Amino acid sequence: MTRAVVVGNRRITGLSADVIAELVSELGPLWHERHQTKLASRPRKRAVGAGAKHRLVFVDRLLAVLIHLRHGATHDLLACWFGVDRSTITRAIGEIRPLLAERGCTISPGVRLRTLAEVVDHLGASGRTGIIDGSEIRVRRPAVGRKDRDVFISGKNKQNAVKTMALTDQNGRVLFCSPTRPGSCADITHARQLGLVKLLADGPAVEILADAGYQGLGAQTGGRVVTPPHRKFKKNAPEWCEEMHERQRKAHSSRRIRVEHAIAHLKNWRALARHLGRREHISDSVQAVAGLLSHQQTADLDPRRQR
């Protein structure tokens, strides 16, 4: 009954029943293979087929992880809902979340983008414009005495956070979300560390829209990163110049707003609104949610699935 309710109501997981069915058929064999490999890697103490059986089958494990990512439900709550022990839910999340993170972002049925280089090549081949922006996710404050305790403090909102870079196309479809960095890392520094400058300088001709936090990348990439226009006069600017600057700024902002909408859709998954778990797992959560959201966006655009 629990499984039927979760699958049948899109508000619970954020995914349609068709997408969940595709996830089960895709990830089920991978999970079973990894589970058997783990069992075979240690000396056997029981006969083949002996021992306790799983009380939480793979489908329910996947649904529990989706609910955890979508609503930030605690392990205790999910354990009560599915009628298992808390440790079973914790183990299931630790097994399924990396599988979701490895899928990449879906751009068409059977075609996925997993690295930033693949995204740049896709934008170049399709002639589309990319949009980048940084997003911060609040995390728990590191323990007292840690030498890197202050690196998680964001210079923007003065809170403990990690930062990820989201990249979408001109229509707001999610194409890539980077692994996270501590909140003190600047947006432009994060982009450089990901190798975006080299990919754009050596790759196909691609236009990337960005906000003022990425000013400076345009000169390093031959003008392929477009940022808001600079003010030509710092003081006593003519009225015509101010009007032109405001008009150019609004035109750039109206094109770039799509990535803000995409980040808002990502933050609808409560695991990315505020992360309460271990910081080592936040990158997997970000990339798992990005892959799930892009998969659902692709499914919604498929005319065969529209009703």
Rank of each mutant, 00 (worst) to 15 (best):
T2L: 14
R3Q: 14
V6I: 13
V7C: 15
D18A: 15
D18R: 11
V19Y: 00
I20W: 01
A21Q: 13
V24D: 07
S25P: 00
S25G: 08
E26L: 09
L27W: 04
W31L: 13
W31D: 14
H32F: 07
E33L: 10
H35G: 09
T37K: 14
K38V: 04
S41P: 08
R42F: 13
R44K: 14
A47L: 12
A47P: 04
V48K: 14
H54G: 09
R55D: 05
R55Q: 08
R55N: 09
L62M: 04
L62W: 03
L63K: 05
V65I: 12
L66D: 00
L66S: 05
H71E: 07
G72D: 06
T74E: 01
H75Q: 10
H75F: 09
D76Y: 11
L78K: 06
F82I: 07
R86I: 02
I89V: 15
T90D: 03
T90N: 01
R91F: 12
I93S: 14
I96T: 10
L99N: 03
L100V: 12
A101P: 09
T106N: 11
S108I: 02
S108L: 10
L113T: 06
R114I: 03
V119H: 09
L123H: 06
A125T: 15
S126Q: 11
R128G: 14
T129M: 11
G134A: 08
E136P: 13
E136A: 15
I137M: 12
I137K: 09
A143G: 06
A143P: 00
A143Q: 09
V144G: 08
V144R: 13
R146K: 10
K147T: 06
V151E: 01
V151T: 09
V151A: 14
F152D: 01
F152W: 10
N157V: 12
A161C: 15
V162I: 12
T168M: 01
D169Q: 01
D169P: 03
D169F: 01
Q170S: 15
S178M: 04
C185G: 01
I188G: 02
A191F: 08
L194F: 14
L196G: 04
P204N: 11
L209D: 00
A210V: 03
G213T: 05
L217Y: 01
A219N: 05
A219G: 06
R224E: 00
T227C: 08
P228A: 01
K232D: 07
K235G: 04
K235R: 10
A237E: 06
C241F: 04
C241A: 15
Q248I: 04
S254V: 15
S254C: 08
R255W: 01
R258Y: 05
R258V: 02
E260A: 00
K267W: 05
A271D: 07
L272A: 03
L272T: 08
R278Y: 06
R279V: 15
S283K: 06
D284A: 12
D284K: 15
Q287V: 05
H295E: 07
L301H: 09
